[in-house]
């Protein structure tokens, strides 16, 4: 089975063509060097398109994809990380870090007690290290919480 690489090569080739098309839309200013801002992206896009074609025409063996269930887990992990990224600013460091770390720990190794301890320990421990040893300016709680 070589379907993955054929699809991947096709996606890459289409993406590269879109990138080249995008290069044509770059505005040039009247003061410009002989090459201008379009040429390099077009070269890169052409190279990427060729690579995509090569991958499509000479695909590797199918990678060992995990079962569908695993993809859901990867999706959930991604969602947790995105949520964590969005929560850091409004909620402060400690609470979102503890929650995100606990969920990740539980996803890697489903032992609820240890995951909970990992979350709390990492959140407090890392905060102390970052704040006091390294001097990073992290907000521990939401602004105006105290």
């Amino acid at each position: 089975m070589t379907r993955s690489d054929r699809i991947f090569g096709l996606v890459v080739t289409l993406g590269a063509l879109a990138y080249v098309a995008g290069a044509l839309g770059i505005q040039t200013s009247f003061i410009s060097d002989p090459l201008g801002p379009r040429a390099f992206p077009m070269l890169v896009g052409a190279g990427a398109a060729l690579s995509g074609l090569a991958i499509m025409l000479r695909p590797d063996a199918e990678p060992d994809w995990p079962p569908v269930r695993e993809f859901t887990r990867i999706g959930v992990a991604t969602a947790v990380l995105v949520g964590y990224a969005l929560a850091l600013q409004p909620w402060g460091y400690l609470v979102p870090t503890a929650i995100a770390a606990a969920i990740l720990s539980w996803m890697i190794d489903p032992r609820p007690v240890r995951a909970l301890l990992t979350g709390i320990g990492l959140s407090v421990g890392l905060y102390l290290v970052f704040r006091h040893a390294l001097g990073l300016g992290l907000q521990p709680f939401p602004r105006g919480f105290f």
Partner: peptide, 25 residues
């Protein structure tokens, strides 16, 4: 050190590092 502790730690350190240089979500 079990992976269930190590990997979350790597993630949290990564987030703190990038967040502290750019401060943007």
């Amino acid at each position: 050190v079990p992976a269930g502790v190590l990997l979350p730690m790597v993630t949290m350190v990564s987030f703190a590092g990038i967040y502290s240089i750019s401060g943007s979500w």
